[in-house]
Amino acid sequence: MTMTDARILTEETPKRSGAFSRWLSMLWADKFAFFAAIFLLIVLLCAILGPYFLGDAANKMNLRGRNAAPFHLRHGIMYVLGADALGRPLLARVIVAAQNTILVAAAAVCASALLGSALGLVAGYSRRSAAQWIMRLGDVIMSFPSLLLAVIVLYMLEPSVANIVLVLAITRIPIYLRTSRAETLEIRERMFVQAAKVMGASNTRIIFRHILPVMLPTLVTIATLDFAFVMLAESSLSFLGLGIQAPEITWGLMVSQGRPYLTNAWWLSFWPGLAIILTTLSLNLLSNWMRIALDPTQRWRLEMGGRKNG
């Protein structure tokens, strides 16, 4: 490493740490968003590490502890939330089920966001007839209620993880398609885009270097909100018996499995249902913070709040 490289590295390190502390300060300015981010981080760690450490415990049956009530530790710490109809600890099952729930929602949101945004960029920037065909495709998809379309398709197909992701991704494409098209139509008329055209920049460079970075914060905020909706849709499908099937587990499937025992073992459905509610609420709180933090015209509110708290 030369002296120049070392100097550049030492200059960039404080900038990166300063940017991180700045964003952390803005997050701390909104206490609800801060604790929502912590909760989502815990859920993400459970989804990644839970099956490796608690996979066996989540499937281990203990018929003597069937429908064991919560907060009684005579069967061990894993039974602090109670047990299901086969004596399996609910704490371990809720943690392990986070992986499938988060995986399905993340895959569906990423697929729909990438495809919908790409089609929206083409429809907004191109002046050819193909742009109209893309918008009509979005209108056709939106003409069907998303959950009803998912129920019909999964009723005809095998309710596997791939089919669930495919159906949920297709139903969410119009949201990103319409948003990215509207943003592209507005951004392409700005002066810096016109200047790039005059300087001879190609259409690909204009789209990826000038238009996409401007609209990316809006798409990220929408994707965060949409993540909560897709997770609820997957839970609804699992509750109806059209989602992921046993022996795999999701939070929605756990709620469905506890439905026959609501009168005498309410905790079977309560804890996975609470996990769904808290995760959805945290995503909504975090998306509201991102809407302000990613907007340069409104970011000063969080920056001022962070300075006062500091």
Rank of each mutant, 00 (worst) to 15 (best):
L49C: 11
L216C: 07
L27F: 13
L166S: 06
S202D: 14
V161C: 01
T263C: 01
L45M: 14
V220T: 07
A182E: 10
S146M: 08
F34L: 14
P296Q: 07
D295H: 07
L232R: 00
F39R: 14
G306S: 12
L281C: 08
L168N: 01
H72G: 08
A33W: 03
E11V: 13
S235E: 04
W289I: 02
A246I: 00
H210E: 06
P213V: 00
S17C: 12
V167M: 05
G50F: 02
N67P: 02
V161H: 06
M199S: 13
L54G: 06
A265D: 04
T2I: 13
I207T: 09
R307C: 09
A293H: 07
R64H: 14
L73N: 01
W267Q: 04
T297M: 12
A92T: 00
L278G: 03
S235M: 03
G82E: 02
L294Y: 01
A29V: 01
A265L: 00
L274P: 05
L185E: 14
W300M: 01
A98Y: 01
A106Y: 07
G310P: 06
I222F: 05
G124L: 08
A275F: 12
W28Q: 13
P260S: 02
N284A: 10
P70S: 02
S256N: 11
R22A: 11
L73D: 00
K60L: 14
L283T: 00
T280C: 01
M231K: 05
D139R: 02
A29I: 01
V43W: 03
A98K: 03
S160M: 10
K308R: 14
L81T: 07
V193F: 15
F144K: 04
I206W: 00
T10D: 15
W267Y: 10
V153S: 14
I134R: 04
L9M: 15
D139W: 07
A37F: 15
M3W: 10
A111V: 14
D30N: 15
R22H: 12
